[in-house]
Amino acid sequence: MPEVSQTAAASRTARRSDRDRWWRRMRRDWWIYLFLLPTIVGYGLYTVYPLVASWWYSFLDWPGFAQRGTFIGLENYERLISDELFWNAFTNSFIFLLIGLPLRVGLGLVLAYLLSRKAVKFRTGFRTLFFLPVVTTGAIIGMVYTLVLDSTGPVNRILTGVGILDQPIDFLGDPDTSLFAAIGVWVWKWVGITMIYWLAALQTIPQELYEAAQLDGANAWQEFRRITLPMLVPFLIIITLIDAVAAFNVFDLIQTMTAGGPTFSSEVIEIFIYRTAFETTVPQLGYASAAAVLFGLAAAVIAVVQGLGAAAARKRMVRS
């Protein structure tokens, strides 16, 4: 039947012209892919591949980069779940997050709020000095703090001299205090950047709102409570997310201050991974990868929860 063959021919030409169009588009756009090439290759090799490969590695018994791994199924995960040191590191990472994160976000907000008020003197000078630790090298700062917080170091001498302490405390060398001392140093180092985030957030609040509040006779606390805080909620979520990710990247400070010790009291997940993968005579790369996968999952869960929180907050803002 002529009709059928006609439609067949039409669809064939349509397909051909589709392919033609695709080819024409590629011929026109080839340079775009050339521009993207460094990013595609680099990102593929150094970000996407590790993301996928870590899962595969976590099923291997793999005693070193020079050797090939053997597939052992879920054995690494079974071992991890019953490994006390893994849970110790996992718990420490979360203690770090639960204490360090609110301290950093809260203190950053207080500093930013004070330094955004016109009444306070030397605001730019203060800002510069609080920001200074942010630009410094974490690993170097960690080693400097081993001296500063040493039982014969200046902090202990000041505290015993003033009479706050009867006896010097070896902050980083005592298993009861090492993790908390590390958290303190982390907050000291990074609060300046959180402060700048908050300053940027504070500047988005229209000045008229404050003027109107002053007209109504509101005091400083009421202004903060009724205007500043509600306007900052969406930023709170973003800033908390950025800082939470940062709280999982503390290898440099902790490795140089305590290396996870004494007796694993300050060992966070990253130290656990580094120790099992690189610092032993027989590297356990598969085992370390399994720990890394669980760690990455935990980080992803936090990111997703925060993302949902951000979306919810935005929706509420739009409605009100």
């Binding site: 591949y49 999982f248 580094y274 990455g296 980080a299 990111a303």
Partner: peptide, 30 residues
């Protein structure tokens, strides 16, 4: 605008929050 633009942006958003401790073994291997 080009073929694959959305895919590239999508992959980047997904991998945005990868901690360094997660990737280091594979990066060393490669």
């Amino acid at each position: 605008d080009f073929v694959g633009r959305k895919l590239i942006i999508g992959i980047m958003v997904v991998t945005f929050f990868l901690p360094e401790g997660y990737t280091i073994i594979a990066v060393t291997q490669i």
